[in-house]
Measured scan of single mutants.
Amino acid sequence: AEKTGIVNVSSSLNVREGASTSSKVIGSLSGNTKVTIVGEEGAFYKIEYKGSHGYVAKEYIKDIKDE
């Protein structure tokens, strides 16, 4: 049951290796980017990222929809 969301930041949002603010940053997404959410862990969504997965803070994702 995948969902999509939109990155809701003015600059960019860090994509992390794990569901923690201390996890390594593996990339970033600019505002209004559409993401595919494959799961959630605590305050983070697990998303599809560059052929693999990454984690982003839930508070910066809006317009969550079921695909």
Score class of each variant (00 low, 15 high):
Ala1Val: 09
Ala1His: 15
Ala1Gln: 14
Ala1Met: 11
Glu2Lys: 07
Glu2Thr: 11
Glu2Ile: 12
Glu2Cys: 11
Glu2Trp: 06
Lys3Trp: 07
Lys3Glu: 04
Thr4Arg: 08
Thr4Pro: 04
Thr4Met: 08
Thr4Ile: 15
Thr4Trp: 06
Thr4Tyr: 06
Gly5Pro: 02
Gly5Ser: 03
Ile6Leu: 08
Ile6Val: 12
Ile6Pro: 02
Ile6Met: 07
Val7Cys: 04
Val7Lys: 02
Val7Ile: 10
Val7Leu: 05
Val7Pro: 03
Asn8Cys: 08
Asn8Phe: 06
Asn8Val: 15
Asn8Leu: 07
Asn8Trp: 05
Val9Lys: 14
Val9Thr: 15
Val9Gly: 13
Val9His: 11
Val9Phe: 05
Val9Arg: 07
Val9Asn: 08
Val9Asp: 07
Ser10Asp: 13
Ser10Ile: 13
Ser10Phe: 07
Ser10Glu: 12
Ser10Arg: 09
Ser11Cys: 08
Ser11Pro: 14
Ser11Phe: 10
Ser11Leu: 13
Ser11Met: 13
Ser11Trp: 09
Ser12Ala: 10
Ser12Asp: 12
Ser12Ile: 14
Leu13Gln: 03
Leu13Met: 10
Leu13Thr: 09
Leu13Glu: 03
Leu13His: 03
Leu13Trp: 03
Leu13Cys: 09
Asn14Lys: 14
Asn14Ala: 11
Asn14Arg: 10
Asn14Ile: 15
Asn14Gly: 08
Asn14Cys: 08
Val15Asn: 00
Val15Cys: 02
Arg16Tyr: 14
Arg16Asp: 00
Arg16Ile: 05
Glu17Val: 08
Glu17Pro: 01
Glu17Gly: 08
Glu17Asp: 15
Gly18Asp: 09
Gly18Leu: 11
Gly18Glu: 15
Gly18Cys: 09
Gly18Trp: 14
Gly18His: 14
Ala19Ser: 10
Ala19Asn: 04
Ala19Arg: 03
Ala19Lys: 03
Ala19Met: 05
Ala19Phe: 04
Ala19Tyr: 04
Ala19Trp: 05
Ser20Arg: 07
Ser20Leu: 07
Ser20Ile: 06
Ser20Met: 06
Ser20Glu: 06
Ser20Cys: 06
Ser20Tyr: 14
Thr21Tyr: 12
Thr21Lys: 14
Thr21Met: 13
Thr21Glu: 12
Thr21Asp: 15
Thr21Leu: 13
Ser22Phe: 08
Ser22Trp: 08
Ser22His: 13
Ser22Gln: 11
Ser23Ala: 12
Ser23Asn: 04
Ser23Cys: 06
Lys24Gly: 06
Lys24Arg: 15
Lys24Ser: 07
Lys24Val: 09
Val25Cys: 05
Val25Lys: 06
Val25Pro: 04
Val25Ile: 11
Ile26Cys: 04
Ile26Arg: 03
Ile26Gly: 01
Ile26Asn: 02
Ile26Lys: 04
Ile26Glu: 01
Ile26Trp: 03
Gly27Arg: 02
Gly27Cys: 03
Ser28Leu: 15
Ser28Arg: 11
Ser28Phe: 13
Ser28Gln: 15
Ser28Asp: 07
Ser28Lys: 15
Ser28His: 14
Ser28Pro: 04
Leu29Tyr: 03
Leu29Phe: 04
Leu29Gln: 02
Leu29Cys: 03
Ser30Ala: 14
Ser30Phe: 11
Gly31Gln: 10
Gly31Lys: 11
Gly31Glu: 12
Gly31Thr: 11
Gly31Asn: 13
Gly31Tyr: 14
Gly31Asp: 14
Gly31Val: 09
Asn32Met: 13
Asn32His: 15
Asn32Asp: 11
Asn32Cys: 06
Thr33Asp: 10
Thr33Asn: 06
Thr33Val: 13
Thr33Arg: 05
Thr33Lys: 05
Lys34Trp: 07
Lys34Ile: 13
Lys34Val: 14
Lys34Glu: 07
Lys34Gly: 04
Val35Lys: 00
Val35Ser: 01
Val35Thr: 02
Val35Asp: 00
Thr36Ile: 14
Thr36Asp: 05
Thr36Gln: 10
Ile37Gly: 00
Ile37Ala: 01
Ile37Val: 05
Ile37Asn: 00
Val38Cys: 05
Val38Thr: 10
Val38Leu: 15
Val38Ala: 05
Gly39Trp: 04
Gly39Arg: 04
Glu40Met: 09
Glu40Arg: 04
Glu40Cys: 06
Glu41Val: 12
Glu41Gln: 09
Glu41Cys: 07
Glu41Asp: 12
Glu41Phe: 15
Gly42Thr: 04
Gly42Met: 05
Gly42Glu: 05
Ala43Tyr: 08
Ala43Lys: 12
Ala43Asp: 12
Phe44Ile: 01
Phe44Glu: 01
Phe44Trp: 14
Phe44His: 04
Phe44Arg: 01
Phe44Met: 04
Tyr45Asn: 01
Tyr45Cys: 03
Tyr45Val: 03
Tyr45Gly: 00
Tyr45Gln: 01
Tyr45Glu: 00
Lys46Ser: 03
Lys46Ala: 06
Lys46Asn: 03
Ile47Phe: 01
Ile47Val: 06
Ile47His: 00
Ile47Asn: 00
Ile47Glu: 00
Glu48Phe: 09
Glu48Thr: 11
Glu48Gln: 13
Glu48Pro: 10
Glu48Arg: 13
Glu48Lys: 13
Glu48Ile: 12
Tyr49Gln: 01
Tyr49Val: 03
Tyr49Thr: 01
Tyr49Met: 03
Tyr49Trp: 11
Tyr49His: 04
Tyr49Ile: 03
Tyr49Arg: 01
Tyr49Lys: 00
Tyr49Asn: 01
Lys50Ser: 08
Lys50Asn: 15
Lys50Glu: 15
Lys50Met: 15
Lys50Pro: 02
Gly51Glu: 09
Gly51Asp: 10
Gly51Ser: 08
Gly51Arg: 07
Ser52Phe: 12
Ser52Asp: 06
Ser52Ile: 10
Ser52Lys: 11
His53Tyr: 11
His53Leu: 12
His53Val: 13
His53Thr: 11
His53Cys: 05
Gly54His: 02
Gly54Lys: 02
Gly54Pro: 01
Tyr55Trp: 12
Tyr55Leu: 01
Tyr55Gly: 00
Tyr55Arg: 00
Val56Gln: 00
Val56Met: 02
Val56Thr: 02
Val56His: 00
Val56Ile: 10
Ala57Gly: 08
Ala57Tyr: 12
Ala57Leu: 13
Ala57Gln: 11
Ala57Pro: 15
Lys58Gln: 06
Lys58Asn: 02
Lys58Ile: 06
Lys58Phe: 03
Lys58His: 03
Lys58Arg: 08
Glu59Arg: 14
Glu59Tyr: 10
Glu59Asn: 07
Glu59Lys: 10
Glu59Met: 15
Glu59Trp: 08
Tyr60Pro: 02
Tyr60Trp: 09
Tyr60Thr: 05
Tyr60Ser: 10
Tyr60Asp: 08
Tyr60Gln: 07
Ile61Val: 12
Ile61His: 01
Ile61Trp: 02
Ile61Tyr: 02
Lys62Thr: 13
Lys62Gly: 12
Lys62Trp: 09
Lys62Leu: 11
Lys62Asn: 14
Asp63Asn: 14
Asp63Lys: 10
Asp63Gly: 10
Asp63Pro: 10
Asp63Tyr: 14
Asp63Cys: 07
Asp63His: 12
Ile64Asp: 07
Ile64Glu: 08
Lys65Tyr: 12
Lys65Val: 13
Lys65His: 11
Asp66Val: 08
Asp66Lys: 07
Asp66Thr: 15
Asp66Pro: 11
Glu67Pro: 10
Glu67Ala: 13
Glu67Thr: 12
Glu67Trp: 03
Glu67Phe: 04
Glu67Asn: 15
